[in-house]
Amino acid sequence: MSANNYIPKEPTVIECNIEKTLDVIGGKWAFLVLRELFNGKKRFGELQRLIPAVSPRALTTTLRHLEEHGVLERQVFPTVPVTVEYSLTPKGEDLHRILKEMKLWAAKWS
Protein backbone atom coordinates (compact mmCIF):
# COMPACT_ATOMS: atom_id res chain seq x y z
CA MET A 1 0.00 0.00 0.00
CA SER A 2 1.47 3.36 -0.94
CA ALA A 3 1.68 6.30 1.47
CA ASN A 4 -1.08 8.10 -0.45
CA ASN A 5 -3.60 5.34 0.27
CA TYR A 6 -2.93 5.04 4.00
CA ILE A 7 -6.09 4.94 6.09
CA PRO A 8 -5.57 5.31 9.85
CA LYS A 9 -7.23 2.74 12.11
CA GLU A 10 -8.54 5.43 14.43
CA PRO A 11 -10.50 8.35 12.95
CA THR A 12 -8.61 11.61 12.95
CA VAL A 13 -10.21 14.25 15.12
CA ILE A 14 -9.97 17.75 13.78
CA GLU A 15 -10.88 20.24 16.45
CA CYS A 16 -12.81 23.27 15.32
CA ASN A 17 -12.86 26.45 17.37
CA ILE A 18 -16.55 26.95 16.64
CA GLU A 19 -17.22 23.44 17.95
CA LYS A 20 -15.27 24.26 21.12
CA THR A 21 -17.36 27.39 21.65
CA LEU A 22 -20.61 25.53 21.08
CA ASP A 23 -19.52 22.87 23.53
CA VAL A 24 -19.38 25.57 26.19
CA ILE A 25 -22.47 27.62 25.33
CA GLY A 26 -24.55 25.15 23.34
CA GLY A 27 -26.43 23.61 26.25
CA LYS A 28 -30.17 24.09 26.40
CA TRP A 29 -30.03 26.53 29.33
CA ALA A 30 -26.54 28.01 29.02
CA PHE A 31 -27.65 30.99 26.91
CA LEU A 32 -30.31 31.96 29.43
CA VAL A 33 -27.96 31.60 32.40
CA LEU A 34 -25.34 33.70 30.62
CA ARG A 35 -27.94 36.32 29.71
CA GLU A 36 -28.84 36.73 33.37
CA LEU A 37 -25.23 36.79 34.55
CA PHE A 38 -24.35 39.51 32.00
CA ASN A 39 -26.47 41.73 34.28
CA GLY A 40 -24.38 40.91 37.37
CA LYS A 41 -23.93 38.34 40.11
CA LYS A 42 -26.87 36.08 40.87
CA ARG A 43 -27.74 33.51 43.49
CA PHE A 44 -29.20 30.13 42.57
CA GLY A 45 -32.72 31.11 43.66
CA GLU A 46 -32.55 34.31 41.62
CA LEU A 47 -31.55 32.38 38.51
CA GLN A 48 -34.42 29.95 39.09
CA ARG A 49 -36.92 32.82 39.34
CA LEU A 50 -35.49 34.56 36.26
CA ILE A 51 -35.58 31.32 34.20
CA PRO A 52 -38.79 29.70 35.43
CA ALA A 53 -38.81 26.85 32.88
CA VAL A 54 -35.49 25.40 34.11
CA SER A 55 -35.62 22.64 36.72
CA PRO A 56 -33.29 22.87 39.72
CA ARG A 57 -31.39 19.82 38.45
CA ALA A 58 -30.93 21.28 34.95
CA LEU A 59 -29.83 24.61 36.40
CA THR A 60 -27.29 22.89 38.66
CA THR A 61 -25.94 20.88 35.72
CA THR A 62 -25.66 24.01 33.56
CA LEU A 63 -23.92 26.00 36.28
CA ARG A 64 -21.42 23.18 36.88
CA HIS A 65 -20.76 22.87 33.13
CA LEU A 66 -20.11 26.60 32.77
CA GLU A 67 -17.90 26.60 35.88
CA GLU A 68 -15.87 23.63 34.60
CA HIS A 69 -15.23 25.53 31.36
CA GLY A 70 -14.07 28.63 33.26
CA VAL A 71 -17.00 30.79 32.13
CA LEU A 72 -18.42 31.48 35.56
CA GLU A 73 -17.21 31.31 39.10
CA ARG A 74 -19.03 30.16 42.17
CA GLN A 75 -18.44 32.05 45.41
CA VAL A 76 -19.57 30.44 48.67
CA PHE A 77 -20.26 32.57 51.74
CA PRO A 78 -20.16 30.91 55.19
CA THR A 79 -23.66 31.86 56.27
CA VAL A 80 -26.51 29.75 57.63
CA PRO A 81 -27.84 28.58 55.26
CA VAL A 82 -24.85 28.80 52.93
CA THR A 83 -25.07 31.61 50.37
CA VAL A 84 -23.68 30.94 46.89
CA GLU A 85 -23.25 33.60 44.21
CA TYR A 86 -22.45 33.03 40.55
CA SER A 87 -20.65 35.57 38.40
CA LEU A 88 -18.94 35.58 35.05
CA THR A 89 -15.20 35.32 34.70
CA PRO A 90 -13.39 37.45 32.09
CA LYS A 91 -13.73 34.42 29.77
CA GLY A 92 -17.49 34.48 30.36
CA GLU A 93 -17.75 38.25 29.86
CA ASP A 94 -16.00 37.75 26.53
CA LEU A 95 -19.02 35.76 25.32
CA HIS A 96 -21.28 38.82 25.60
CA ARG A 97 -20.28 40.20 22.20
CA ILE A 98 -20.77 36.81 20.52
CA LEU A 99 -24.24 36.36 21.97
CA LYS A 100 -25.22 39.93 21.01
CA GLU A 101 -24.23 39.18 17.42
CA MET A 102 -26.28 35.98 17.46
CA LYS A 103 -29.26 37.95 18.77
CA LEU A 104 -28.89 40.50 15.95
CA TRP A 105 -28.64 37.71 13.38
CA ALA A 106 -31.80 36.06 14.71
CA ALA A 107 -33.69 39.37 14.67
CA LYS A 108 -32.67 39.99 11.07
CA TRP A 109 -33.53 36.52 9.76
CA SER A 110 -36.48 35.44 11.93
Score class of each variant (00 low, 15 high):
I7A: 08
T79W: 03
K103N: 09
F38P: 04
G26D: 05
L47D: 04
I7S: 07
M102S: 09
K28P: 01
V80G: 04
V54P: 02
L104M: 13
R35S: 13
P81R: 07
T83R: 14
G45N: 15
I25S: 03
R43W: 04
N17E: 14
K42Y: 03
N4L: 15
V71Y: 01
R43C: 07
E68K: 13
T12N: 12
R64A: 15
V82M: 13
A106P: 00
D94V: 00
E19D: 10
R57F: 10
S2N: 03
R49P: 00
P11A: 06
N5F: 14
M1H: 08
G45Y: 12
L72C: 11
I14E: 11
F44Q: 02
L59Y: 05
P78E: 08
R97P: 00
R57M: 08
Q75S: 12
R35P: 00
Y6E: 07
V80A: 11
G45A: 14
L72Q: 03
L104H: 08
M102T: 05
E68R: 10
P81M: 07
P78M: 06
R64N: 14
E19H: 06
G27Q: 04
I25A: 02
G27M: 03
T61Q: 14
R74D: 06
T79L: 14
V54M: 12
Y6V: 08
P8K: 05
E68P: 00
V80L: 14
V80S: 14
K20H: 04
E67A: 11
V24F: 00
G26Q: 03
T12W: 05
